[in-house]
Amino acid sequence: GIPATNLSRVAGLEKQLAIELKVKQGAENMIQTYSNGSTKDRKLLLTAQQMLQDSKTKIDIIRMQLRRALQ
């Protein structure tokens, strides 16, 4: 079985993952909103794209940590 310490770690990672998935969803929504907007929305679009990139990276890292914890 999986050690108890790993189980609480997994629960924490799953919570983090859920949050990051919401951030990713929000960033994707912002990108959709701003991509057909005016030029003043360009900065917001770039910010949203950066957020999305960061979020995807975090999600990958969390998933990797989850896999390790579940081994």
Rank of each mutant, 00 (worst) to 15 (best):
G1D: 10
G1P: 06
G1I: 10
G1F: 10
G1M: 08
G1C: 15
P3I: 06
P3N: 10
P3G: 09
A4P: 06
T5P: 10
T5W: 14
N6A: 09
N6Y: 06
N6M: 12
L7V: 13
L7K: 14
L7Q: 09
L7H: 15
S8I: 11
S8L: 09
R9M: 15
R9W: 15
V10L: 05
V10H: 02
V10A: 03
V10D: 01
A11K: 12
G12M: 15
L13P: 00
K15T: 04
K15Y: 06
K15Q: 06
Q16E: 07
Q16N: 04
L17A: 00
A18G: 03
A18N: 06
E20W: 15
L21G: 01
L21R: 03
K22V: 08
V23R: 12
V23A: 08
K24M: 13
K24R: 10
K24D: 01
K24Q: 07
K24E: 02
Q25G: 02
Q25N: 06
G26I: 13
G26Y: 12
G26L: 13
A27D: 00
A27T: 03
A27R: 03
A27S: 02
A27C: 11
E28C: 09
E28Y: 08
N29K: 12
N29T: 08
M30P: 00
I31R: 01
I31L: 05
Q32D: 08
Q32I: 10
Q32R: 11
T33F: 09
T33N: 08
T33E: 11
Y34M: 04
Y34W: 06
S35Q: 08
S35A: 09
S35D: 04
N36L: 05
N36M: 06
S38P: 14
S38H: 07
S38E: 11
S38L: 12
S38R: 03
S38Y: 07
S38F: 09
T39S: 11
K40W: 09
K40M: 08
K40Y: 13
K40G: 11
K40D: 05
D41H: 05
D41Q: 03
D41K: 02
D41L: 04
R42D: 14
K43I: 09
K43E: 13
L44H: 06
L44F: 07
L44V: 05
L45W: 05
L45Y: 04
L45H: 02
L46M: 11
L46V: 10
L46D: 04
T47G: 08
T47P: 02
T47N: 14
T47I: 13
T47E: 12
T47Y: 09
T47M: 12
A48Y: 08
A48M: 05
Q49L: 12
Q49K: 06
Q49C: 14
Q50G: 03
Q50D: 03
M51Y: 03
M51K: 04
L52W: 06
L52H: 01
L52D: 01
Q53T: 07
Q53Y: 08
D54Q: 06
D54T: 10
D54N: 08
S55N: 02
K56P: 00
K56N: 14
T57G: 05
K58I: 03
K58E: 02
I59Y: 01
I59G: 00
I59H: 01
I59F: 00
D60K: 15
D60S: 14
I61P: 00
I62H: 01
I62L: 13
I62D: 00
R63W: 08
M64F: 08
M64C: 14
M64Y: 10
M64H: 10
Q65C: 12
Q65P: 00
Q65W: 09
Q65A: 11
L66G: 00
R67Y: 11
R68I: 15
R68T: 13
A69G: 02
A69Y: 11
L70S: 05
L70K: 07
L70Q: 12
Q71Y: 05
